[in-house]
Structure formats: C-alpha cells, structure tokens
C-alpha cells in the first residue's frame, strides 16, 4: 500500500506520505479506503468515489407504487381522526387518535419527499382503474376521501384499495356518535392499520423490493408503530 501511515505515530500527521508520491494534487491526505473481501480473502483499496458508489441503492416500480398507495392509505386515517375530534366520546380514544394522526401525517410528508427526490409522481395513477374506485376517469388521488365519493350514488362497499375503509364504512362512521362512534372508529382503524401491515408484507415478498435504505427504514417503522397501535386499540375496544 502506498501510504506509510501507521498507528505507531499516535497522532497521525496528515501530510505524511511516501516521498515519491506527488502530494500536491491530492486533497488533504487521508488514509486509504479499504474494502475487505470475504473471510479468508484479501482486502483491496478503493477510491473515495468507488466507496460512495458502493452505497448506491436502487428502487423498484413496486417501491414507488407502495409509497404512492400508502399516502392515500394514510390520508384516510387522518380523515377518520378529524371525525373523531367532533363525534367521538372517550378522551382516551381521542388521545390515541391524535397520536395516530400525527404519525400518519408526518409519514405522508416523508413519503412525498421520498417520491419527489426521485422524480416520481406523488399521486398514484393506477388507483382509479382498479379496485372499484368510484371516481372513474379522475386524475387526482383524492378518491381516498369518502366524502368525495358519496355525493351522487349510495357509497360503495368496496374500498379504493385493500386495507382501507370503504366509502360506505366511512359514511357510517361519519353518521355515528358517542360510544358507537368510538367502536366503529376503533374497529375501522384496526382494519385500516392491518391493511398497512398487509401492504408492507406484500411489498417485502417481491424480489428486490425495499432495498432502498430510507424506504426499508420506513416500512419497518410502519410495522412497529401500527402494530403497537393495533394492540392499544384492541385494549380500548375491550373496555368500551
């Protein structure tokens, strides 16, 4: 290796270099960057550019679709909590609802940021075509809002995506009050959260999905948070 840097020096002189090496062109000298081999295999050195390149991760179409869908999914939870604030009964359910809304709203920001940073559309263009979405032909992603769907015909019992509440469920929730609202809210939110867990599971089953570090981190925290919230909601439901 060309760099005679050694720990015996204690404090390394950053200008210490092999005298035969031209020092001027290099940025402030730093130790070589090693890339070890498998156990038993030799170690090699790489350049800073190669080292950073090793961190490059990619993402798949499924990753993008997952993020787009999850934004719509999360928006429904925020809507449900808005209803809870005015129609709910139990302060404990309301407190939990606020926590859910805080979490889901900031995760929506994170997902939008992830998509935008990768030049991907924030809105899912495939949602209206399948899943029996009511606003056929629409180009925005607001079909996740139940009130949007409920103007003309009777609200559909088919959710816009698996794991979401159907427009009819949302309409029943919006019509309920007091303890009955709390019950519908908790049941609905458990179903909703379970849907997110299913979406994550589906994504992870696909080859090469969720290899992007930030995305990988995100889906794992979705699982942790929503799972523990399901637990809490079940406890509350049992006490109603």
């Amino acid at each position: 290796m060309p760099h005679p840097l050694g720990i015996a020096l204690g404090i390394l002189s950053l200008t210490a270099q092999d005298p035969t090496t031209p020092a001027r062109q290099d940025p402030p000298a730093s130790p070589p960057i090693f890339q070890p081999g498998a156990p038993g295999q030799p170690t090699r050195t790489v350049t800073a550019e190669q080292a950073a390149e090793l961190a490059r991760t990619t993402y798949t179409e499924a990753d993008v679709r997952f993020m787009q869908h999850m934004i719509v999914h999360h928006a429904q939870a925020v809507d449900m909590v808005k209803l809870l604030e005015v129609r709910g009964h139990s302060p404990r359910v309301k407190a939990l609802g606020r926590r859910i809304a805080i979490g889901q709203a900031s995760e929506m920001d994170l997902m939008r940021g992830w998509l935008q940073a990768r030049g991907q559309p924030v809105e899912a263009h495939d949602l209206h075509a399948g899943h029996g979405a009511p606003a056929a032909g629409g180009h925005d992603a607001h079909a996740g809002h139940a009130d949007h769907a409920g103007h003309a015909a009777a609200p559909s019992e088919t959710p816009i995506m698996p794991g979401m509440l159907s427009p009819a469920q949302m309409a029943r929730l919006a019509a309920a009050e007091g303890v009955e609202f709390d019950r519908l809210f908790l049941e609905g939110m458990i179903q909703h959260h379970q849907g997110a867990l299913d979406m994550v599971e589906e994504l992870l089953a696909l080859p090469d999905s969720a290899e992007d570090t930030l995305l990988s981190d995100f889906v794992t925290s979705v699982v942790a948070d929503q799972s523990s919230e399901i637990l809490r909601m079940r406890s509350l439901l049992a006490e109603l």
């Binding site: 720990i7 404090i11 390394l12 730093s30 070589p32 960057i33 090693f34 080292a51 950073a52 090793l54």
Partner: peptide, 23 residues
C-alpha cells in the same frame, strides 16, 4: 451504513486513521 471509520482521538481532535467500506 456503508462500513466504518476509525479515528485517533489522543490529541482531542479526531484524526481519521482507517476507512473501511462494507455496505
């Protein structure tokens, strides 16, 4: 996430002595 770095801290200011990439 991409490996690890080692610094000598005997002078107070961390001086890089080792960089290893291993993602």
């Amino acid at each position: 996430f991409n490996g690890f770095n080692a610094y000598d801290v005997s002078s107070g200011k961390p001086e890089l002595i080792l960089s290893v990439v291993c993602p």
